[in-house]
Design a protein around this nucleic acid. Structure first.
Lengths: 124, 124
DNA sequence: TCAGTAGTTTACTTGACAGTTAAATAACTA
DNA sequence: TAGTTATTTAACTGTCAAGTAAACTACTGA
């Protein structure tokens, strides 16, 4: 939820962030990488191991995950260990929960309304 | 979490479901539509109103949302009211929360882990 | 039956993205 | 120094998704 303070509103920045994060998570390879990194940091080769894909393919996926802030990478000799970022999934999680909340409230009201109608019908 | 019982495992079906749902939510127009439908059902024209996009464009977005089960459509005269499906976001929500859980558990054991990793790095 | 409203389908253009191979870069090791 | 390992970049291909205009379907109400 970063606001760069110029050129675009915070809302639009969030929108872009959500685009990028949802897009990143839409790919099964990238989801598997995230799931793997949830357990521990790992090098590119370690991450690539379970897949048939070539290393450049994996490298591209990692770049996508890095660009939207889901992972970060450091340097250790010739290795580039990948690290899952703490609040990476907060934005998407928030969006989903917010919508569920609105949806649920709406149906709580509907129930109430229905009960209201029924009690009125009972008396008329 | 539907298992069709043939050709593919439940896990893969879920995988496809996640692909589709994350892809659907990766588009800001579709997210706005979902947010709008969280408040109430709406017709295609009502949904299209806030956007510059042509009606066929909106129609396509609705089809994407429908295909992955996020919305459903009924028929009322010449209208096709759209309805947000109750458990539409459960799958993605579950995936995210599961990964957060794993990630968090890992960091609850942080000290132990770090010592382990560092001692391994020291010996290699 | 005709005009109008609601929405979809078709055909097309454009752009983004997944994956590949081949070559380059960067750091370690003998 | 040369060779090896880890990873990225470049260039290319194929596919798929977003958007449009134009034509079409389906229903309503006069």
């Amino acid at each position: 939820m970063v606001n760069f303070g110029n050129e675009r509103s915070a809302l639009q920045v969030t929108d872009r962030q959500l685009n990028a994060t949802f897009t990143a998570l839409a790919d099964p390879t990238r989801r598997a990488i995230v799931a793997r990194l949830a357990r521990s940091d790992a090098t590119v080769n370690e991450l690539a191991a379970p897949f048939k894909m070539t290393l450049p393919g994996i490298s591209k996926h990692l770049k996508v995950l890095e660009r939207c802030g889901i992972i970060s990478r450091s340097r250790n000799a010739q290795f580039r260990p990948c690290h899952l970022e703490r609040n990476a999934l907060d934005d998407v999680s928030l969006w989903i929960e917010e919508n569920r909340r609105v949806w649920t409230e709406r149906f709580d009201k509907l129930d109430e309304h229905l009960r209201d109608i029924q009690s009125k019908e009972g008396t008329s």
